[in-house]
């Protein structure tokens, strides 16, 4: 992909998550890009650099849909919704278990953060439930808090 224009910076983490899941879970990669596409269009689809970037992203999404067309999670958004929500919850629960066991490490920080990004992605299917909003807020806060503690040599509470 071409370099991300500054106006679209807020979708960079969702695009990175897509890249990281390209082989591990293409359905996750597809919906992360769909979220990035929708959000990017709202942010700026007028300036030439953003249009160029978004057209390339759309090309990529269309190709992915063609390749993954047989997958129910792609052809039926209701199945896709369940897939992304379950995946986000799985990430959240892994990080939460580590947290409650007092095991603080980079992987659990990343899991909290990825869970929060995937809950953003769930919004492509409709308004987020209150429970998802709370999980997203908690996961993002925990990721930042534990990251800062480890950076400063402190033990998270």
């Amino acid at each position: 992909m071409a370099a991300l224009p500054a106006q679209l910076r807020s979708i960079q983490h969702h695009l990175r998550t897509a890249q990281e899941h390209e082989r591990r879970d293409p359905v996750v990669a597809y919906y992360c890009r769909l979220y990035a596409m929708q959000t990017g269009m709202k942010l700026d689809s007028k300036t030439p650099e953003c249009r160029k970037f978004l057209i390339k992203l759309m090309d990529q999404l269309e190709l992915m849909k063609k390749d993954l067309g047989d997958n129910d999670s792609i052809s039926q958004e209701v199945v896709g919704n369940a897939h992304i929500e379950n995946y986000a919850l799985k990430m959240f629960l892994y990080a939460d278990n580590e947290d409650r066991a007092g095991r603080f490490h980079k992987n659990m920080i990343k899991s909290f953060y990825t869970a929060s990004l995937l809950l953003d992605v769930v919004s492509v299917f409709g308004e987020l439930s209150e429970e998802n909003i709370q999980h997203r807020k908690y996961a993002r806060w925990k990721a930042t808090y534990i990251h800062n503690c480890l950076k400063n040599g402190e033990t998270p509470q």
């Binding site: 769909l34 596409m37 929708q38 269009m41 689809s45 007028k46 249009r51 978004l54 057209i55 759309m58 999404l61 269309e62 849909k65 958004e77």
Partner: peptide, 27 residues
């Protein structure tokens, strides 16, 4: 002119919106 530029931009924007709707089977 500026208005030609604007029309081109909005046509491309519409094209993106249409492709997005098609991708999501909304048209």
């Amino acid at each position: 002119t500026g208005s030609v530029g604007t029309s081109v931009a909005s046509a491309e924007q519409d094209e993106l919106s249409q492709r997005l709707a098609k991708l999501r089977d909304q048209i």
